[in-house]
Simulated scan of single mutants.
Amino acid sequence: VGSVAHDFNNLLMILSTNVQIARRRGATGLDRELSAMERALKSGQSLTRQLLGVARKQPLRNETIAIGKWLPACRELLKASLGAKLALNLETSNDVWPVRVDAAELELALINVAVNARDAMPSGGTFSVRADNVRFRHEDGFPIIGEFVQLTLEDTGAGMGPEVLGRAFEPLFTTKSKGMGTGLGLPQVFAFCERAGGVATIDSALGAGTSVRLYLPRASAVVAESPAANHDTAAAGESHGLRVLLVEDNEEVAAGTEALLSMMNHHVTHIFNADGAIAALEAARRDIANGGALPFDVVLSDIHMPGKLNGIDLAEILQSWTPRMPVILVTGYAEELDRARQVDARVLSKPFDIALLDSLLQAIRENLNAHAVNREHGEAPH
C-alpha cells in the first residue's frame, strides 16, 4: 500500500507542478479547467494521505497542542463534515492535558469518524465529541499504561452488528455502496492513534449507535506559541536566484520542479540519483582545494532513489563537509523519516506547494547573504 501511494504521489507531483506552471504563466481562458484539476489534486492528496496513514508511512509533523483550546476550533470543520441534518455536541475544558501529535492527522481522524457518523444517521441525529483525562494502571488490563487524553466520538445512528464491528478497523473494508466509501477512514484513525503511542477502540450495537474512543498520550512539554511567519515575498521575487542541485530519479517530476524553480529565477542542475550527486560534488570539492568554489548553494533531493545511496545518505555525507551545504529532502512517505530528522535538512512531503519550497529557499538565500556580509567584515560565519 505504501509503495502504491508513493508512486501515486509522484504522479500527483507531476500534475501539481505543471498546474502551478500554467498558473504562473497566466494561461488565459483556462481558469475553470485549472481549478477543476486543483480540486482533483486535493482529492488525490487526501486519498494518498489516508493510504500512507494506514500503511504507517505518512510523514508526521508532531507538535504539542492544548486539546482544550484546539478542539473548539474544529467546530466549524466538524459541522461541515456532518451536514445540516445532524446536531454537534462538543465538550472539553482547559483542564484537559496537552498531547503531542500531528495536528493534521488528528483533524483527519475526527473528520473520518464524523463522516461515518453522518452516513449512519441519514434521517438526523447527534454527534458528540468529549475530551477527558484518564489514567491506566497495569492492573486495569487495558493495552496501554499511563496518562492519556480520551477523545470520545459518539453518534446516535443505526449502529453495527458484531460481524461488521469486528472488521471496522480493517483496511479497505466497507459496508457502504460503491463510490461512497474507500474503507480507509477508520483504519486511518486506528493507525494514527497507534503511531502517536496510544490506541483507538470502537463500541457499537445495532440500534444503539457507535462510540469511537481515541487515547492519546499526555505530552510532557508545555504548548509553545508559534511565532508569526514574516516573509517578504516581494523582496524574494526581486533577489538573485540560487544555484540548486536537483536530485530526482523521476524524469517528469524533475522536469516540472526544474521548470518552476527556473521561473523563480533559480539556476537548476539535475542529477538522476544520490550516487551521481556525490560524484559531482566530490569533483567540486577537489576544485575547492585548488582555489575554486562549490558550484551549488543548496541541494534539493528526493529520499528514495535507485543506487547505493538515498537522499538521507546524501544529506549525512554533506553534513560532514566544510563548508556545509544546505539540503532539502523531499519524500512521498515516512520510511526512515525519523533518521531524516536527525540530519541537518528540511523535509517536504510530496506533492508540495511551490510557495513552501520558495520560503525555504528564501531563508537559505538570506543566510548566505548574511554569511557574505560577515566575511566582508572579517567575522566568522554563524
Score class of each variant (00 low, 15 high):
A191I: 05
M263H: 11
E170P: 03
L34S: 03
P59E: 08
Y333C: 13
M121S: 11
I145G: 00
H266R: 11
N62M: 09
I145H: 00
R118C: 07
H371G: 12
T322F: 13
H377C: 10
L318N: 01
N18H: 14
G26Q: 01
L71N: 05
R324S: 14
I364E: 05
A114I: 07
H240T: 14
L15Y: 12
M263P: 01
P187R: 03
F8C: 06
G276W: 00
C74G: 06
V298Y: 10
M160P: 00
G159H: 02
D140V: 01
A40S: 13
V298Q: 07
K69A: 15
E76T: 12
N133E: 02
K79E: 09
N133R: 01
G332V: 02
L110V: 11
P227H: 05
L309N: 06
A109L: 04
N94T: 15
G207R: 09
G157K: 04
E238G: 11
G276P: 04
P217M: 01
P143I: 12
R137D: 08
T269V: 12
T48G: 06
G291Q: 09
Q319I: 05
A277S: 08
E105W: 12
V101C: 03
H138E: 14
S239V: 15
E76P: 01
E163N: 05
G166V: 10
A205Q: 06
A380K: 11
E107Q: 13
A355L: 12
Q58S: 09
W321R: 07
T126D: 07
M305I: 09
E154P: 02
A277H: 09
N367V: 15
I278Q: 13
E147F: 06
E33Q: 14
L314N: 02
V327T: 12
R61N: 06
F148T: 08
D297I: 07
L86E: 02
A120N: 13
S320V: 10
E379L: 15
D275L: 08
D353I: 14
A280C: 08
G29H: 08
A228I: 13
I14D: 06
L337I: 14
P98T: 09
L242H: 08
G183Q: 02
R135A: 09
F8M: 08
A229E: 07
P217Q: 00
D302Q: 06
E163K: 04
G291W: 10
R285C: 09
F296D: 01
P351N: 12
G179R: 00
H266F: 08
R341H: 10
R285L: 14
R75P: 00
S177V: 13
D140W: 00
R25P: 03
A315G: 06
D313N: 12
A234G: 11
R135Q: 05
V134M: 01
G183T: 05
A372V: 11
S177N: 04
A219I: 03
L78E: 05
